[in-house]
Design a protein around this nucleic acid. Sequence first.
DNA 1: AGTAATTTGTTCGTATGTATC
DNA 2: AGATACATACGAACAAATTAC
Lengths: 77, 77
Amino acid sequence: MSPVPRYRQLAAILRKAIEVGECPPGSRLPSEKTLTQTYGVARETASKAMDALAADALAVMVPGVGWHVPPEVTGES
Amino acid sequence: MSPVPRYRQLAAILRKAIEVGECPPGSRLPSEKTLTQTYGVARETASKAMDALAADALAVMVPGVGWHVPPEVTGES
DNA sequence: AGTAATTTGTTCGTATGTATC
DNA sequence: AGATACATACGAACAAATTAC
């Protein structure tokens, strides 16, 4: 009994992958279907994980395309 | 509840059609849209059925074209 | 060159049933 | 009783690749 829900665990894995640089800014993230196959989770779980990342502005969704890492937001002028 | 999911039932039907020779190697398989109309299932169900066939190497997908029966793989040298 | 049609990829929303914590 | 989670299944919308005209 893990106190941490699976969708949060999956979100943590993806967050790590983004921060480490495996998924550079602007790149596409794995589709929810791929996540279900790769991590053996239900679509619901994969979707909630992505929502968690989106809440932290680590992922954005483009209709008909999929999830992406948002482009670098440089605060420089 | 039926012990066998609809997408597996549909996969079995298509598998039979291929093995019987109704869909010879290299030929196109019915589109997912056609399957939904012919068998009264959702597109997701048709898609999962095709994925099941693909897992058995009985079908391959070409983007923008559709599903095909893979060309004859002759084990002859 | 450009538009439309076809087909699949991808996601979202919703729903039911089952099971576990 | 509620939250989490998986499996199944329907409907809908938008995007991308291919093909036909």
